[in-house]
Design a binder for these strands. Structure first.
Lengths: 146, 146
DNA sequence: TGAAGATAGATGCGATTGCATCTATCTAGA
DNA sequence: TCTAGATAGATGCAATCGCATCTATCTTCA
């Protein structure tokens, strides 16, 4: 096995996958125990709530890194559950505008404390502020397109 | 929204998810273009190859963080593809021992250069050695059980 | 204008995942 | 030694994902 990749890089790669897996699965386990919204539901609702006035699916797709077909179906489920409302986009008839409903706001709000608590428990409590900042900065470099 | 979580922690959390997603999907896209093994297949084969002499599924489960039912089926596929061989475990009849086949070694070996190249491209080239080391250390803290 | 191509989103279908549960051992304690 | 859990792994079923493709608009440019 020639050294095509340094050991450090390999280690960082493995830990990136493992750490995300560990944090997400712990968060989901806590969430499930508390009966809260799935993380993706939360993320969509939160995005819609912040950008009051309607959001286009393709914007969500970019911001939240969903695959188009997955997002399309996720929205179906959110609409089905009464948490999101779809409207035809007035300026582009191909598209639609999404709005969070009152029920959606309520559900998101109810989930938030659990989510926050879990985030602290599985992430915040394990790093100092300075470390969290450093981590965010390093991860930022990985996200950038090369 | 009271400050139940610091902004820094939230940012680190979001970036952890995004960065892993970005790197994994880029790696997979490159891999698909090159026609190489899926990442999980690679990981299992690599583990089996390093620990020559048979590996128990539950060990893989722990080391590679698979859900038990997913691993069980992943092994089915690997066996089906002729890359892995299953044997009844001599010391525990509930269990089994897994071995990589010659075809499995060959497939893993053929995939490696592509994998390594992609890992450098999407991870190694974006960080200095010192940064990669720092990142690995910080991620390590997240993986630890609290 | 009026195509030719780009973009927004939906959808059929097969593969994979997650949940719950099942069988077959193994292990520990009475 | 016998039984009540624990553990290893498999599996039915419903939900979700990924791929490819489809429809319905836009947009651009000759």
């Amino acid at each position: 096995m020639a050294e095509l990749v340094s050991d450090i890089v390999t280690k960082a790669w493995i830990r990136l996958v493992r750490a995300r897996h560990a944090v997400v699965s712990r968060l989901e386990a806590d969430g499930k125990a508390a009966g809260t919204l799935p993380i993706e539901w939360y993320d969509v609702l939160w995005d819609l709530e912040r950008r009051d006035g309607g959001v286009r699916p393709f914007e969500l797709e970019e911001r939240l890194l969903f695959a188009q077909y997955n997002l399309s179906r996720l929205i179906d489920r959110l609409v089905e559950a009464g948490l999101v409302r779809r409207e035809v986009c007035p300026t582009d008839k191909r598209g639609q505008m999404l709005f969070i409903t009152e029920a959606g706001k309520k559900a998101r709000k109810a989930t938030w404390p659990h989510y926050a608590r879990a985030m602290n428990k599985h992430l915040g409590d394990k790093l100092t502020e300075a470390e969290a900042e450093k981590l965010a900065a390093l991860l930022g470099k990985l996200i950038e397109k090369s």
